[in-house]
Amino acid sequence: MASIPTPGPEYTTHILPAPFTSSPLTLLAQGAEALVYRTTFLTPNTPCILKYRPPKPYRHPILDKRLTRARLLAEARVLVKCRRDGVKVPAVLGLDADQGWLVLEWVEGGNVRSTLDRWVKEGGQFEKLGESSKDGENKDVWEFMRAIGTSVGKVHDIGVCHGDLTTSNLMVKTTEGHGQAQPQKPSAPAQPYLTGDIILIDFGLATQTVQDEDRAVDLYVLERAFAATHPGAESLFQEVLRAYGESYRGGRAVLKKLEDVRLRGRKRSMLG
C-alpha cells in the first residue's frame, strides 16, 4: 500500500490497494491532465505504469468527478478494445474510475522520437535518404517507418482514433537485449534498435470512430509532430503514409482526405 504523492503543494492521501503497488512510485511525467508513475505489480520485479488523474481544485467537484470518470473509462475501453482486436498497446491491469487511477503494463524501450534522434546521432542523415537507399544500408530506417505506418493503420482499422499521435506517443519495444545474447547472424540488422514492435501509448484523447475525416486529422497531427521534431525527415514520413495506405482497406481513402485536411489546416480565418 502506498499513497500517491502529487508534486503540487497539496498532497493527496489516496491509497492504491495491493497488489497494484508494492514499491515506491517514481514520477515519470506530468502532463496537463495526468501524472505518470512507475511502480510494480504483484512482485517487486514486475514494473508497471500508474496513470493518476488528480482532482482539479479549480473544477466543481461534481463536474471534476464526471470528467475524470468519463475520460478514464474511455481510455481504458479503447485500450481493451485495441488489445482484443490485436493492436499492440499496453494492457490494462486495473483501474478505479472514481479515484482516478489506471494501472498499465510496462513497455520496455524508447519512443520513436528518441530512436530517430539516436539514428541521427549515429550518423544517419535524413537528407541523404533517396529512394535508392531503401534496399541499401539504410534499409532498416525505411522498414522502421513502414512499421509505424502499419501500426497506425491497424488502430484506425479497428475504429479507434488516437487523438494525439506524436513521435513521443509511439514506443519501440526493445528487442536489442536478446539479440546480443546470441551470436550475430550475417543478416542481422545494422541498427537493432530500429526493429522492435511499435506500441502506441497514451490514449487519453482517443475516440472510437470510423470517420475518414477523424482518421485524416489523426494523420495530420502526426505529420505536424514529425515535421516539428524531426526537420528534414519529410521523405521518410512519406514512407509512413505509404505503408499506412497499404495497411488496411480504406487506408487510401483516408490519405485522399488527408490532402483536404492539409489544405484546410487547423486554423481557418474566423470572425473576430
Partner: peptide, 18 residues
C-alpha cells in the same frame, strides 16, 4: 460559469504544459 470556465482553464493548462 462552472462548466465553461473549467473548459477555459483546462485548455490554458494544456498550453502551459505544452
Amino acid at each position: 460559469q462552472e462548466t465553461i470556465y473549467a473548459m477555459l482553464v483546462e485548455i490554458t493548462e494544456r498550453a502551459m504544459a505544452h
